[in-house]
């Protein structure tokens, strides 16, 4: 059994992994209880499992946990809290940009990565950045508005 040292949401976490290939998603959800990150496809096709690794949006369902050892991992729980929302989260609430909400955490994380690199994106850039995040309920128009709103308010 191998020990794995991770840095998640600003804290050092050590877990035991039987399988060296265990995807980050399962470590986050099962070992660390961070269930805000969702399983959607296991194929890096839908974006529901998106987290930030060193500031980049990464699909945790196909990312081996060991490959991010030592890097800063941020999940939706580490982005903001109800009392101290990230501007992206605040904008999603302002636009009521969710229906079932299962895909929402992944979209918030993707949007956060975009705005950190491109603080004033065009709407086309927002759409392109979110192209790998699927939503079935059809909240897209509100999500686009939310990300533009966060950007307009200096959402870094």
């Amino acid at each position: 059994m191998a020990k794995l040292a991770l840095r998640v949401n600003g804290g050092n976490r050590e877990i035991e992994a039987d399988d060296p290939d265990v995807p980050l998603l399962y470590v986050l959800r099962d070992d660390l209880g961070l269930t805000g990150t969702k399983f959607g496809c296991g194929l890096a096709q839908c974006g529901a499992c998106t987290v930030l690794v060193a500031g980049r949006a990464v699909r945790s369902c196909t990312t081996p946990a060991r490959s991010v050892a030592g890097q800063d991992v941020v999940t939706i729980e580490g982005l903001g809290t109800l009392d101290r929302l990230d501007p992206v989260q605040a904008a999603f609430i302002a636009e009521q940009a969710a229906q079932c909400g299962y895909c929402t955490a992944g979209m918030v994380m993707t949007a956060r990565a975009l705005l950190s690199r491109t603080p004033r994106p065009s709407e086309a850039q927002v759409r392109e950045a979110l192209a790998g995040n699927l939503c079935r309920c059809g909240s897209h128009a509100r999500v686009i508005r939310a990300v533009m709103r966060a950007a307009a308010q200096g959402g870094r």
């Binding site: 959800r29 961070l34 269930t35 805000g36 990150t37 969702k38 399983f39 999940t75 939706i76 729980e77 982005l79 903001g80 809290t81 109800l82 929302l85 989260q89 999603f92 609430i93 009521q96 940009a97 969710a98 909400g101 299962y102 929402t104 955490a105 918030v108």
Partner: peptide, 19 residues
């Protein structure tokens, strides 16, 4: 009126069956 479930959904705190 605003939905009560959206703040928890955008912060990852909403507890789904899957969780």
């Amino acid at each position: 009126l605003r939905r009560p479930d959206i703040p928890t959904k955008v912060t990852g705190l909403h507890r789904y069956l899957h969780d």
